[in-house]
Design a protein around this nucleic acid. Structure first.
Lengths: 248, 248
DNA sequence: ACAAAAGTGTTTTTTATACACCCATGC
DNA sequence: GCATGGGTGTATAAAAAACACTTTTGT
């Protein structure tokens, strides 16, 4: 809410030199362990100061000639091998003082973080452990204190995930190729919390949308009647794109 | 979709030096002229190369010690005086080659644009014309070719505005302090297009939400029965925050 | 046989949609 | 008095929510 002395301040700031930035990309990579109903996020252990031996989001600084998204894909590829993934930009965190490295040369180089949000299939994702770096899937329910402002970034990513689930079919990017309807339901409850909807109503709504096709293949998980395996039919979904589309 | 030779590429890129960035902030500032039912966006005329004499979004480069949001508020304050405004981050555009200035020193300084999305009240917003710079409210229906990738940024902002209208009470940030229910309806139709809903149903739903209070003050606009002026009651809205909340 | 999980159907309540109609004012 | 925009109500259709019930398996 700009006041009256706004122009004086503006005039003063006009003398201020421009900030020089290094731009980092940090990925919030989610995945869901359907067998244990846990939402997981990929963390790596920092090998340098600052925040040596703290867990943090996998990130990198952007190189010359590299786009932001390229950088996001690069770190992802360095940490995990996946067949399929969903990736979109999350938010840009860029206040001064968000990175302690800035303190050394006070008004010198600033560090900006463009965060990306990714979803991968837990079963298909193969972590690349390179002896030196620690890397692990962490349940979002039990996160440690992370380096920098990464807890904040992660919380933002978590909120985005919850919202996305409600109006876009991202769930099928995280689920295995073939899944039971109960898998979908479990995914929704683990991310959105209990009592977001009754199973049978959820099921009916989902099927009525018409983009899941029954493979007729049955799987039996312990006792009880075997469940049908379904597949996401991208072609059948296409016309529903940009439509309101509500799952909850 | 990382392949097999991914690691080789990564190893190669590891030799690549980091990019140095200048970070710009560009604002997509919307406002609605209720009298003419037009959605407007604030544009300024560029005074330098590149894109001399092209219209563009009001923007600035981030200075030392200044946060991204501070920079966004700064340009806003340089261009318009407003009592009330809504501002949020939009998206970060950052591929190489988005700014022709990068071409001069090829792999040197990169220009990144963090865009912000703002809403102001048309009646209260006073444009600051400083003789040199051209500045104007442009109807989004008739936009010129803008400098840089600003048409793209603006389109993104427009999409965000449409979405925000549907599930958050941003409309009341753009409307005058007191407004008729028809003003709200007109705002929604100008942004969302015709036939998004019947007026009387829209009205009923809106009132049932219970955060609009009738001031009982009547205004007569030409012929017809005078309309009641309403006010947005922030306190009454508070409990509805984060709730699904659908207007459409 | 019975517990457990999958899958179907039915009833009730709520919400959306499409109108018809009354009200207050200017001309 | 009648056109014009403001405001209310009602009848119908559709969707959400709650829950009872059937089916198919393992043990």
């Amino acid at each position: 809410m700009p006041g009256h002395n706004q122009r004086k301040i503006a005039a003063l700031l006009n003398q201020q030199p421009l900030a020089d930035f290094k731009v980092g990309v940090d990925n919030v990579i989610f995945s869901v362990d359907t067998t244990q109903n846990r939402l997981l996020v990929l963390l790596v252990m920092r090998q340098q100061e600052p925040f040596l031996n703290y867990w943090c989001l996998p990130g990198t600084l952007v190189r010359q000639g590299e786009s932001l998204e390229d950088a996001a894909y690069r770190i992802l590829a360095e940490k995990i091998r996946v067949k399929n993934l969903y990736l979109e930009q999350l938010y840009t965190f860029g206040g001064p003082d968000r990175d302690p490295r800035e303190a050394f040369d006070s008004f010198g180089v600033r560090y900006l973080s463009v965060s990306y949000f990714a979803l991968v299939r837990f079963e298909e994702a193969e972590l690349i452990a390179d002896k030196v770096t620690g890397i692990a899937w962490y349940p979002v329910k039990q996160l440690p204190k992370l380096a920098f402002d990464h807890n904040e970034i992660l919380a933002y990513g978590h909120r985005r995930l919850r919202n996305k689930l409600e109006y876009s079919p991202v769930a099928f990017e995280v689920l295995p190729e073939m899944f039971t309807l109960n898998d979908v339901y479990q995914l929704y409850t683990t991310v959105l919390g209990e009592n977001f909807s009754d199973y049978s109503n959820f099921r009916a709504r989902l099927l009525k949308l018409g983009f899941l096709c029954d493979t007729k293949i049955k799987v039996s998980r312990g006792a009880g009647r075997p469940a049908s395996l379904y597949k996401f039919d991208a072609a059948a979904f296409a016309p529903l794109k940009d439509k309101p589309l509500v799952f909850i």
